[in-house]
Amino acid sequence: MDHLDLTNDSRTTMNSGVRSVQIHDDERDVIFTCVVQYPTLTDTSSTTIGPYAFDATLNAPIAAGQFPICLVSHGGGGSHLLYRSIGTHLSKNGYIVIALEHFGDNRNDRSLADTDAGAELRPRHAVLTLDTVLGDPFFKSAGDSKQVAVLGHSMGGYTALALIGGQPYSRSARKLAVKADPRFRAAVLLAPATDWYRAPGSLNNVTAPVLVIAGERDSVTRPEDIRETLSPLLENDPSQMIVVPDAGHFSFLAPFPAHMRRNDFPPSSDPEGFNREQFHLILPERILGFLNRTLITR
């Protein structure tokens, strides 16, 4: 079981732009949003979205060329704005990073959280988001639909597994109606919710390489449970699992602004002795390395 190398070998070549895109689900008659970070040659100026500062320039022109894509799926009841350290680093290194806000399972609306309906909707909305961004005039010629990865945290890890061929089952043993998308050719799973995939054969159709990163002190998605469930996937090179010493379940979220950090707000807190700021100087580079090896060269 690997541990994370705390060597920062960052070699960014561009800056990051950011813009919002609205996604229309005509079948359900709902609208949700995503934030897209992308490579730009424009000088960086900070952009504030909600309470969070992005090291990215709002609506900057996209750099010339065609770029691989990484779609980000947030955790249950979470936010698409909480993975900006990863999104910024990937976009500065030539990726288009699409972070969607899951309808009915986000910080403002938990009406579908922990439900079968929400679990089935998540991967469908991820695909709809990818289709919308690829069809958007701003990104249409820049996104490479043959080089697409998915990154998911917690319930987002559930979503990522469904997109690459996993067959989830509900807690009542009902087979959930999800559909894989062959465009997703690699997956990064951060403290993934794997209990949906414990039925025999649930992962038989997953062939994409996966990078699994878990927190040693995560009591929500315990590393031993993750390894047990995903062991069939981890037998195939270059898939791997990393356990981060002392990290908790929320350590994978970008550091919160100082005024939002408090002990009674678990997403902003880490186990004693864990340095989230330092970790987020390292985590994006490890993710970039995996995607470059498994997505770009395949």
Rank of each mutant, 00 (worst) to 15 (best):
T132L: 02
T42M: 12
V148G: 03
F256Q: 07
Q278S: 12
N8G: 06
E27Y: 12
P257I: 08
H80P: 00
D264Y: 07
V212Q: 04
N8F: 12
A214G: 09
T159A: 10
H125A: 01
V243T: 15
D136A: 08
H3D: 12
L58I: 03
N204T: 13
L163G: 01
A187L: 08
V244M: 00
L281I: 09
V35E: 11
A180D: 09
L128M: 14
G152V: 04
S79T: 15
F103E: 13
T13D: 10
G201E: 04
T42K: 14
M260K: 07
S172D: 13
G65Q: 01
A63E: 13
F67L: 08
M241K: 01
A180F: 04
M1P: 10
D25H: 04
A149R: 05
S16C: 14
A63Q: 11
E224V: 12
L4D: 05
T294P: 02
I226V: 15
C70N: 12
P51K: 09
L163S: 01
T40H: 06
A187H: 05
A258G: 03
P168V: 04
M241I: 14
R286D: 02
A258D: 13
V150S: 02
Y83A: 06
L291R: 07
D26K: 15
R19G: 00
T229A: 10
V133K: 04
P238F: 08
S172G: 05
K179N: 11
A199G: 00
R84E: 11
R217Y: 09
H280C: 07
N108Q: 13
N59D: 15
D131F: 00
D105T: 10
V35N: 14
V178T: 15
T294H: 05
R84Y: 11
G215L: 02
T129K: 07
T194L: 01
E216F: 02
V133M: 05
T44Q: 14
L163K: 00
D43W: 06
F67Y: 15
G157R: 06
V127W: 00
G248Y: 09
T44I: 09
V97A: 01
A149T: 08
Y38T: 00
I86M: 12
L58H: 12
G152H: 06
W196E: 10
